[in-house]
Structures are given as C-alpha cells and as structure tokens.
Amino acid sequence: MALITISRQSGSLGDELAEYLSERLACPMVTRDYALNNFFGDLPEGVTARLNESAKFFLNEIPGTGHTYRDVIIEKLNETADSYKDGDLIVLGLGGFYVLGGRKQAVNIRVFASEETRVSRIARKYNISSDEAASTLAIGDRKHKRFVSILYDKDTSSTDLYDLAFNSDSLSVEEMGAAVLSLCEKHDIRTSISETTRNDESIDHQSETPVFKNATEEEFARILNMYNIEWMYEPKTFPIEWDSEGNIKMAFSPDFYLPKFDLYLELTTMDQKYVTKKNKKLRMVKELYPGVNVKIVYKRDFQELVERLRAFGG
C-alpha cells in the first residue's frame, strides 16, 4: 500500500517516473489535468483556462459554495487518498506532498535535474531549439513554484519536504522507479507494524538505526544479510504482565522480525538455566497475542549455525 506524491521540475523525468510507477503498481494517478476535469464538476466557460494560467485564481471562491478552488483541491485529494487507503495511489504535482505528505503511508518524492539536462530533454521532446526550450523551461519552473507558493506557502526546492530526492541527470526512469518501489515496500512494512500496535497491547518501538546489544545479534544480522533476508531489529514490544493499575510489569521484545516470513526471532546466548524464563515469556506472548509467530534461537542453535557456515557454507 503506497501513497506516492511526486514533485518535479519540468524536464526532470518526474512525469515519466509517475507514469512508470502507475503502470508497475497498476494504480491510478492524480494529475493536474485529472483534478481540473474531475474535482470541480462542470466549470463555467473560461474558468479552466484561468486556473491553468494563474495560481492566484485557485484562491477565488467557487460561486455559491463558500469554498475556494484551493479548498476543493485539498478536500478532493484527501478524499481520493482515503478511498485508496488500502491500495496504491500516485499524486503528481498539485502540492501533494503538502496536502497528503503527513499521512503515515505517504512517500514524498522530488525529481530534479540540471538546467542543461532539462533544456536538452525539452528541446528533443518537442523538437524545438535550445533557446526555445530554455524559455519554456523558465515558464514551467515559475508556474510550478508559484502554484505551491501561493496555494500552500511552501517552497518546492526545500529538501525537508521530501523523503527521497533524485537528480535525474544520470539516472533512468527505471532506476528511479526501482528505488521508489523498494522504499515503498520497506515503508509499508514499518507502517504496517505501527498499525498492528493499535489493535493489540503491543508497543511499536521501531528505531531509525539498530543498536545491537551484543556481538551475537550483530553476527546474526550479518548472516541474514548474507542470505538476503530482510530483517528489522526489535521493532515491537509485547507487554505480557500488568499490575493492578494497568502498568506494564513484564514485556518481551524479540530481537529480529523477518517481514517476508512474518516471523519474530529471539536470540539467546545465555546459559540454559536462564533460558527457562525466556521460554515462559515466549509462551505468554503466544497466549496473549494469537497469530504472532515467535521462535527462540538457542545458544546451541546459533553456534551450530555459525560452525556449519564455516565448515559447510550453509
């Protein structure tokens, strides 16, 4: 489930990237044309042209509604995103990053390129001279900038508005697309884990970077990397015992989560006598959180695995 907003400079391949992603994800794409044709119902003659010409016109009230064109853009973008919350959606331009960027599932992309590259692309695409392309580019850039600045009081060139920015000077649409799809997949896993914590007592504590507690965990992460198995480190805590006031007395935070296998793994390097407590915790997690798949990797298992990797390679 991906909500991708794409902000782009003219001639940066941002439009092509949006089309590529829409095709790969087989999902709809909201563009400026789509918005003008579908968000406002039947517009009086000349209004569409005015909206295309002037960003300021979006601040005018739509006769008899009490709402501006800007209000409707925001409302309709949110409505569309709501209706696709269980699927994928791409929003190209329209200040999508501002309107929808704060949503958990949103991935905000910016595509830019050097002026030289963009002029060359536009000249080739429309079969015009470099001077004409440069002039077209200047008008396009100004319009994009003014639209976002006037409607949302934001500067499109601020990098803090985006999760991922591409300089497409030496990147293909496929390369950028692959990076966006990979990011969306990982982001979806993170947000899904956050979502599940709403439905039970578990606590989301996904960190930005894993800080391993010991060398065994670090080695195990390396082994998973070696086999190209995606993992997350301690993404979730499962409370398993509470006091009479509802405060958490005991909790269990499995070391690794393997999203592809929906599997939590807990490593234990302790002596057997301490493992009993961990086994008890594991049983309680299984009782309190049915459907959660957790396994303990015992010290012996881990040593055996490392020995086998050394001796047999797998």
Binding site: R222, Y227, N228
Partner: peptide, 14 residues
C-alpha cells in the same frame, strides 16, 4: 550459489 567472502565482514554474501 556460493558464499562470496567479504574482506570487511566475517560472513560475506551469498
């Protein structure tokens, strides 16, 4: 498949 050793890591990559 093979375990390609990585000089910076103990385990390399498959």
């Amino acid at each position: 498949f093979g375990n390609i050793p990585d000089t910076t890591k103990k385990t390399g990559a498959v």
